Simulated scan of single mutants.
Amino acid sequence: MSRQTYELEASVRDRVGKGAARSLRRQGQVPAVIYGDKKPPIAIAVNFREADKRLRGGGFMTTVATINVAGEKILVIPKDYHLDPVKDQLTHLDFLRVGAGSTVTVFVPVKVVGTEKSPGIKRGGALNYVRHEIEFECRADSIPENVECDVSALDINDSLHISAIKLPEGVTPVIQERDFTILTIAPPAGFNEPTEAATPAA
């Protein structure tokens, strides 16, 4: 199930460049760009606190939003963002225009369930993520919030592959040529699988 959409107010930027961007940030704004859908890009500015709240709230890159620019409401999905490497503050946003029913390519986070029942984890095994996110193609209005991976039946050295995941209708992995691994149950240090005792000679 996709996350609930939200709306951001934005203003058109008259100036671009590093100096103009720094000036916007001092005013509590974040420079951003809307592009795609075979239309010219629009340089905009959005409120820093509102954008940062959406970013930190989770699911930011998989949630379709509406940006209100000078009275025009544009349906978008975030495609990239930049953070200050020192202050960890949002400094720039890229949004992709999407039309109703259009197809997008997005990375969806992996959500693990069933760890309390996993025989491998009960025996001391460790959950090893091969992929924290999976890239999918799907409708813009049907982006899943996460990919649920059930490990309740996995033992030590077992793996979970994409073929074992039940995906919503219309959601397709970008990688089609192989049944890729999502996670494994790694053995603990010094683990030796017990072997059957040899049958005594007659």
Score class of each variant (00 low, 15 high):
residue 186 A to Q: 04
residue 192 N to E: 09
residue 170 G to W: 00
residue 133 E to K: 12
residue 173 P to A: 04
residue 148 E to Q: 13
residue 171 V to N: 03
residue 182 I to M: 12
residue 121 I to P: 13
residue 186 A to V: 01
residue 128 N to R: 08
residue 159 S to D: 05
residue 189 A to L: 10
residue 164 A to P: 04
residue 176 Q to S: 14
residue 138 C to G: 07
residue 149 C to Q: 01
residue 140 A to T: 01
residue 182 I to L: 15
residue 133 E to L: 09
residue 162 I to E: 09
residue 143 I to N: 05
residue 170 G to N: 03
residue 176 Q to P: 06
residue 187 P to E: 00
residue 147 V to D: 02
residue 155 D to H: 05
residue 180 F to V: 05
residue 105 T to F: 02
residue 136 F to K: 01
residue 98 V to K: 07
residue 161 H to A: 15
residue 137 E to Y: 02
residue 152 S to W: 00
residue 187 P to V: 01
residue 151 V to R: 04
residue 179 D to V: 02
residue 139 R to Q: 10
residue 188 P to A: 11
residue 172 T to R: 07
residue 164 A to W: 00
residue 126 A to E: 02
residue 130 V to C: 11
residue 180 F to K: 07
residue 187 P to L: 07
residue 110 V to I: 14
residue 161 H to Q: 13
residue 152 S to D: 03
residue 135 E to W: 01
residue 177 E to A: 13
residue 190 G to A: 07
residue 143 I to L: 08
residue 115 T to K: 14
residue 176 Q to A: 15
residue 129 Y to L: 15
residue 93 L to G: 06
residue 123 R to Y: 06
residue 108 V to T: 04
residue 135 E to Y: 02
residue 158 D to C: 14
residue 125 G to L: 05
residue 115 T to G: 14
residue 112 V to L: 14
residue 180 F to Q: 11
residue 147 V to S: 10
residue 157 N to A: 10
residue 176 Q to Y: 02
residue 95 F to T: 03
residue 172 T to I: 12
residue 113 V to A: 15
residue 99 G to Y: 00
residue 115 T to H: 08
residue 193 E to I: 08
residue 153 A to P: 05
residue 111 K to Q: 13
residue 155 D to S: 15
residue 123 R to D: 12
residue 183 L to K: 09
residue 104 V to H: 04
residue 186 A to S: 11
residue 185 I to T: 07
residue 188 P to V: 01
residue 145 E to Q: 13
residue 119 P to F: 06
residue 153 A to W: 00
residue 130 V to P: 06
residue 172 T to V: 14
residue 179 D to P: 11
residue 168 P to V: 01
residue 95 F to W: 00
residue 182 I to V: 15
residue 154 L to Y: 10
residue 177 E to M: 13
residue 174 V to Y: 09
residue 181 T to S: 13
residue 161 H to V: 10
residue 145 E to H: 10
residue 187 P to H: 00
residue 133 E to Q: 13
residue 118 S to K: 06
residue 157 N to E: 11
residue 97 R to Q: 11
